[in-house]
Design a protein around this nucleic acid. Sequence first.
DNA 1: CTTGAATCATTCAAGCTAGAAATATGTCGG
DNA 2: CCGACATATTTCTAGCTTGAATGATTCAAG
Lengths: 142, 142
Amino acid sequence: MTTSPEPQAIAERQLCGLVNGLAQRIAEHVRECAAALGLTASQATALREMSGPMTMRELAERMCCEPSNTTFVVDRLEKQGLVGRHPHPTDRRAKHLVLTAEGAALRERLLGLLAEGSALSALGPEEQHVLRGLLERAVARS
Amino acid sequence: MTTSPEPQAIAERQLCGLVNGLAQRIAEHVRECAAALGLTASQATALREMSGPMTMRELAERMCCEPSNTTFVVDRLEKQGLVGRHPHPTDRRAKHLVLTAEGAALRERLLGLLAEGSALSALGPEEQHVLRGLLERAVARS
DNA sequence: CTTGAATCATTCAAGCTAGAAATATGTCGG
DNA sequence: CCGACATATTTCTAGCTTGAATGATTCAAG
């Protein structure tokens, strides 16, 4: 025994592991749905968040990643003809991302796949509500 | 049914977002603690899990990643003189990972840093217990 | 013993991600 | 208008992660 770790610290570490495990499981589900449509996981995440025209920065915020990353992802979506980079109507610095018809159709299929067999469907509506409350509190107090 | 998304699906998507956000916050905390010791996040994760001698595969399981990844991470820990790859006592295929004195000392400092200011400290012990139960159920049913 | 399947670790290619620096544009006070 | 500062995007570098081979070793059945 070196410095006996406090039980509270150990419990929190285990909890962190559980959160991570669940996040990985969710990511795995996204990856599977994406692969079924010939997309990578991050491409699918981008497509999922594209509920309408938006800028690169807006997409980055929705995807919870850095803008430099969305450049990379959108590059490939654009090459696949799923999304277009148009000039922004009011801000010439920004790009106006718009789904092509093909992109919009693929997005619909993706949303359908994602809705089936989510990792969280193991929990009932009531439990999901409790979970949501706890997570919101944990995330809010950073 | 493709056009009108069910509220249940939307709620689950938001919940996934929350889980992801919390996982990212936890990862951010690890990264900060690691940086304070001159380590990367994944090096710190490896060090944290090295509570004793173990094989590469065992470390991979504890880190929740692929064995090929631990090869990469341990390579650098080894170059920094924090961990040694020794022959396994009973299985010549496996490596016996052992922390050096320096590695063990750094691990103690790391555990101390990690214990402070965890993202989950916003929740009380009772809430953490509830959260643990929900997460375990969600993870178990894959 | 010997063959075949399984397991451990590694290598490699591909993709993901963050962060710093660079470029272009917008905004605001003077 | 002009200059200073802020913002949107991109480029580049470095590190992270996976999954499919590969080679060495173990194990079990014949």
